[in-house]
């Protein structure tokens, strides 16, 4: 019999809620109260997440974000700034000791990215893993991920671009040198792609999520059963949201 993991689909949450859910599931997973959990989610309003070690004011134009109603949040994972708009975001929370998860961090990135690659394949997109944390198709980035390990638990979350607006993204992010901004935007446009761009049609989030579900099931030889957050996770999410992710202390930490 195949091992059963939990699948969560949570649409249209704020950046604070999204980050708080991932953090809450680390707690319940560590306490062995829930099976390995894969979540597919979206953001409303659109938001920028920055890596744990990034300086918020160095990376993000806060006044533009405030004017446009774009949220910003510091992740508990390292890596770079991401504008979450028209995308599928995934997260997986699984014990570090699970037999399916390589002990080596870089290898485990590759393994989890394997699920996304298989998911993209179900949508008709051929892609490859580009170590450490990217997935590319025809040489262009379509997905990026970030992982942390705490409380003997692995959290990896990442984005799969359904559509991309590089100009909008750059209006929100600070660039080191304004003079080269135009060139930078041109470069990024050539280096980034999306599901809609490749398939030349609009793919709905739920359709992409269904493909990713099959990708995870195939990669890990498991069955994903759709479920909900437990009451404890809902309470923990509220706590992490109000006491951590929505606070100035956390987001302006660096």
């Amino acid at each position: 019999m195949k091992e059963k993991w939990r699948m969560l689909i949570t649409e249209d949450n704020s950046a604070y809620t999204n980050m708080a859910i991932d953090r809450a599931v680390i707690v319940t997973s560590q306490e062995k109260k829930v099976p390995p959990t894969v979540r597919f989610f979206t953001w409303s309003p659109p938001a920028i997440s920055i890596g744990y070690f990034q300086s918020l004011e160095e990376e993000v134009d806060l006044s533009v974000c405030n004017n446009l109603g774009i949220d910003y949040v510091r992740r508990i994972t390292g890596g770079g700034a991401v504008f979450h708009d028209k995308e599928l975001t995934y997260s997986i929370v699984i014990p570090e000791t699970h037999s399916q998860i390589p002990k080596n961090i870089i290898n485990s990135y590759g393994r989890i990215c394997g699920a996304i690659i298989k998911g993209l394949n179900y949508l008709g997109i051929e892609s490859q893993y580009a170590p450490i944390n990217d997935i590319i198709t025809n040489g262009k980035k379509i997905s990026g991920s970030a992982q942390t390990r705490k409380e003997k638990t692995v959290l990896q979350h990442g984005t799969v671009l359904i559509d991309v607006d590089v100009d909008r993204m750059f209006s929100l992010l600070k660039v080191p040198n304004e003079k080269i901004k135009d060139k930078l935007i041109k470069d990024v446009k050539q280096r980034v792609t999306s599901i809609n761009t490749i398939l030349k049609k609009d793919i709905h989030f739920l359709k992409a999520a269904e493909a990713m579900k099959m990708g995870f099931e195939k990669e890990f030889n498991i069955e994903l059963i759709e479920g909900n957050l437990t009451n404890e996770e809902i309470e923990l999410t509220k706590e992490f949201e109000t006491q951590l992710f929505s606070t100035k202390k956390w987001n302006h930490k660096r």
């Binding site: 890596g51 744990y52 070690f53 990034q54 300086s55 160095e58 508990i76 994972t77 390292g78 890596g79 770079g80 700034a81 961090i105 450490i132 970030a146 992982q147 942390t148 390990r149 705490k150 660096r254």
Partner: peptide
């Protein structure tokens, strides 16, 4: 000193 950037460090508290 404040060390920032888009790198990864495990454990994060190490920085």
């Amino acid at each position: 000193i404040n060390i920032t950037g888009d790198f990864f460090a495990y454990p994060e508290e190490a920085i």
